[in-house]
Design a protein around this nucleic acid. Sequence first.
RNA 1: GGUGGAGUGGCUGAGCGGCCCAAAGCAACAGCCUGCAAAGCUGUAAACCCACGGGUUCAAAUCCCGUCUCCACCUCCA
Length: 473
Amino acid sequence: MSLSLFDSKAQAVRAFAPIVPGQVGIYLCGPTVQGAPHVGHLRSALVYDQLRRWLTVRGNDVTLVRNVTDIDDKVLDNAKTTGEQWWALAYRYEIEFNRAYSALGILPPTYEPRATAAIPEMLEIIQRLIDNGYAYVAEDGSANVYFAAGKWAKYGELTNQRIAEMDVADDADPRGKREPHDFALWKAHKAGEPASAAWNTPFGVGRPGWHIECSAMATKYLGAHFDIHGGGLDLRFPHHENELAQSSAAGDEFANYWLHNGLVNVSGTKMSKSLGNSVFASDLLAAGRGIAVRYYLGSAHYRSVLDYHDGVLEEAESAVSRIETFIERASRRLAETKFARALPTDLLQALPTDFIAAMDDDLAMPAALATLHESVRSGNSSLDSEDLGAAADALIAVQAMTEVLGINPASWESEQGSQKDEALDALVQSLIAERDAARAAKDFARSDAIRDQLKAAGIVLEDAADGTHWSVS
RNA sequence: GGUGGAGUGGCUGAGCGGCCCAAAGCAACAGCCUGCAAAGCUGUAAACCCACGGGUUCAAAUCCCGUCUCCACCUCCA
């Protein structure tokens, strides 16, 4: 059994085989940094983080390239509105995106190139396309360069469409296009646009079109033929279709597998600026812990629509804390027994076969989570019956699974928290001791008062056979 | 007009020909445990047999046909 993935281009689940065994190159369409990150951006990044982690566990050396598109119509427009330099605005949002990714435990990509740093590579592809007749300089004398979609016979192969049957956008501006479905590879500099957003080229002064930057960056870092290209479902057309067309027409083999993650709806409807229902990363992180947000966003299958509505984060929080409680409880019980074990370096050795099978099956996350929860339940059961050997097996399995999924509580403990934790623990322990004394004296009014006092401060007590434990609720 | 996806318990969400009288989570109820809780476990209830109507098959939530509803994309979009 090995990994299978749904390839959007083939519209089928295909067995995954890297071009070079043991090495996987993934290009992921990152954000256009024109605004604040929202729940959809996070889901997309998270899905590929899960894929990347799984490929790594599976023994592959993964190179993940996720770009930042830092030059674009919207970036320029928005900068005009705020009065910033466009590059300052782009960088400001880039930082915000990275903070949000990090808050969800999304590992940094191997490299994160910016579109503006790949202009020569874009021009090189455009020149190749002009040379072989698939692109032309606008006929209105501007520096616009278009891809001649109609000339590329395979145009539409990614999304199974034919040009003749496609709608033409009402607001399409001809701007020297030969055919309405031709798209811009290079956009002429317009009066009023900052000089810093214009580059000198053989066709004239201008800036990149929307799709060319991804073709350039993908092949610059991963080569003309690489394994996986990913992105949100909304990018299939036109963005990915056009990327594929221009890269293939330029003679590159390009991506072997195309992956698309499902979008996030808000209470059943599409999230859009005009509806004003956008849920931003800051909203999510204000509403729940990063680990719970990550669990929520990663709990549905990556290709299905994920609905965001009231209560989802609370539900995720409940599920996560159940897992955390088990890990704490089991670790405590097994510590200093012969059953205490460390997680093996090769996680595959510690993962249940059902979990491995689920992950291999196009990242069947709901099935993987079902296995995780089953292990938690059986582990708790083993602890109840003092079957420590079985409990230890369950603990290792649970830790390994949470590690793969990026929800291992141990990895989420705050780095700076330890000193404060120690101080707090000392304080709480003294109250617990006082409460124990009261309980021993059957002064339950006093003992309950202490428990209530702690609860009001957000600290929950649990009386177990081996003493009282506390945690932050 | 074209392309793709979805309709499963109170909610979320799997399953995609037999192991399904349908996983898992959340919520609910009961019991055990506890001084009482919390946590945990066990159990119960919960899907007019999985949108509806036909059909194929020894066998269908799963395949086929039709109908209804919903969603996405067709040059702004993760």
